[in-house]
Design a protein around this nucleic acid. Structure first.
Lengths: 116, 116
DNA sequence: CTAACAGATAGACATTTATCTATATGTCTA
DNA sequence: TAGACATATAGATAAATGTCTATCTGTTAG
């Protein structure tokens, strides 16, 4: 599979504060000051986290007057779920390349879990 | 949502080499020496990465003679996909707690993406 | 029993990262 | 135009992390 975009997404998500930000934004667009009310850290720290999320392609920013509006990118939601399913699926994309390795067993079971 | 197990999983996955190990194991059980052939780093480094994956609940180890057999935990596959869907879903579990915030819009669209 | 092999542990080191304070930039309002 | 407000940037620092070499433990085979 292609790790080029998936790994940066995982890195950006692998921080409890940023994960909570994503959770907040899964609700919809929020400005920085609204997000900040949910945390104990400082405003520059939030600014840093938002930059990380943007660079990972998770969030977009739109300036409206004084406010910076942050939105979860639909493309991220789609890509992250697809990449995750592809990673954990034991299917034709198995790294053994031909699906014939001794380890390519229990495919049906794994697929059940992933597609349901 | 509950970040207690999800964040450590994300942390463990957010390294390109460990992600490749997970990809390899999504094929099925492998011993350490087999995994090592796919990488440039040293044996102690692999040992370190496998420990991280175990502590995150992603992988189980079983010693068979000299060999350590590593397997992707089915519970991880299930939990990680569920947590991911719950995080990215814009549903009743929205952090606003009552689904009534101004931002709770476009729910139908997001849900389409996640459940299909 | 000894040597070879698989893997784990210890400790060091360079890099990354999450955070802070101080300050700068940009925007609105009185 | 001045001041208040929202956000970004700069620079510092402590902690975490990925990697290495050296060494240790445990298992198998001769």
């Amino acid at each position: 599979m292609d790790y080029q975009s998936y790994v940066p997404m995982l890195k950006a998500m692998a921080d409890p504060n940023r994960l909570k930000i994503i959770d907040l934004l899964s609700c919809g667009t929020l400005c920085a000051c609204d997000i900040l009310t949910h945390f104990e850290f400082s405003q520059p720290t939030l600014s840093h986290h938002m930059k990380v999320l943007q660079q990972a392609g998770i969030v977009t920013a739109q300036k409206v007057g004084k406010w910076q509006h942050y939105t979860l990118k639909p493309a991220f939601v789609i890509a992250f779920l697809q990449d995750t399913k592809q990673l954990l699926a034991n299917d034709a994309d198995c790294i053994c390349h031909d699906g014939s390795c001794d380890n390519c067993q229990d495919q049906a079971t794994r697929k059940d879990v992933i597609t349901k």
